[in-house]
């Protein structure tokens, strides 16, 4: 699976909220490379003069027919704000697809729990679709502070059951993802999570208490995205530093120290 660096064309910027948008990117010149769920793009934000390094953003969905993929971007600082200001027709320089993605289990009919919070739900959409296409049954468990934090629910529903929690009780069950009743009412073969660190750690602890394999997608600070600079490391259980960009961003949580 080779990596590319290219100017892609923005075909649409769907605002989901003031500070969230889905950016659709099209390659007019060549067929998109194979993209695995959980892989990411290093975006160069040329129109943001103070944004020096590229910004890593997960691949949210892929549309092979349109030769497009999309990014779900949360505007938290200058670089991501500038991404939300993109207009159809603009070019965006993308280095992709990077990293190792989520596992698609062998066989079919596996029950997977995909647990996301905040912008961490981004890679779970494409993962859910690929799972469904492979004959598995994903359940999405999405958490937020409030109803307005839950994004792309209609799209998630196309690929599996959607369960939600909000901390203020405005949508779904009241509480955090690990409080949701589905964890007791349904059994799962494997778990995947992406979102704020405390959420992923809680999910990993829960999975580990049931001996379920659990994969988490990490969001460490990155410079190169290629495994060349060693800036993005995380500690493994045997105390080695490994690259999140190249060895991850998706890891089996048993491999990492932070779960303890």
């Amino acid at each position: 699976m080779s990596k590319h660096v290219k100017d892609l064309v923005v075909t649409a910027v769907e605002k989901l909220r003031d500070d969230y948008a889905v950016i659709h990117l099209h390659d007019p010149a060549a067929t998109l490379p194979e993209i695995l769920p959980g892989q990411f793009v290093e975006v160069r934000v040329d129109h943001s003069p103070n944004t020096f390094l590229r910004r890593p953003i997960s691949i949210n969905e892929v549309d092979i027919n349109k030769n497009e993929f999309s990014l779900l971007v949360h505007a938290v600082g200058e670089g991501t704000k500038a991404m939300l200001a993109l207009k159809p027709g603009d070019k965006l320089n993308c280095l992709y697809p990077l990293g190792h993605g989520f596992t698609i289990p062998e066989g079919s009919g596996r029950q997977l729990l995909l647990c996301g919070g905040g912008v961490g739900t981004a890679p779970l959409l494409y993962y859910g679709r690929r799972l469904k296409e492979a004959g598995h049954e994903p359940t999405f468990l999405l958490g937020g502070r409030s109803a307005r934090d839950l994004l792309q629910l209609d799209q998630f529903e196309q690929y599996g059951r959607v369960c939600c929690t909000t901390e203020d009780g405005t949508y779904g069950e009241h509480g955090r993802v690990t409080d949701h009743s589905v964890l007791k009412s349904q059994t799962f073969d494997a778990v995947a999570t992406c979102g704020p660190m405390p959420m992923m750690q809680a999910v990993a602890r829960w999975a580990s208490s049931l001996n379920l394999p659990c994969e988490a997608s990490l969001e460490n600070l990155m410079a190169c995205g290629l495994g060349a600079c060693l800036c993005c490391v995380v500690k493994t259980i045997d105390n080695h530093n490994i690259c999140v960009c190249q060895d991850g961003p998706v890891f089996n949580t048993q491999q990492l120290q932070w779960q303890k």
Binding site: C229, C232, V233, K235, N239, H240
Partner: peptide, 23 residues
């Protein structure tokens, strides 16, 4: 060498800081 702990980088005006530490 294992190098230094994370975080090992910071973006700065027209540049970056790193403390990878020869991993």
């Amino acid at each position: 060498r294992e190098g230094n702990d994370y975080p090992r980088m910071a973006e700065t005006p027209m540049g970056m800081l790193n403390c990878v530490g020869l991993q």
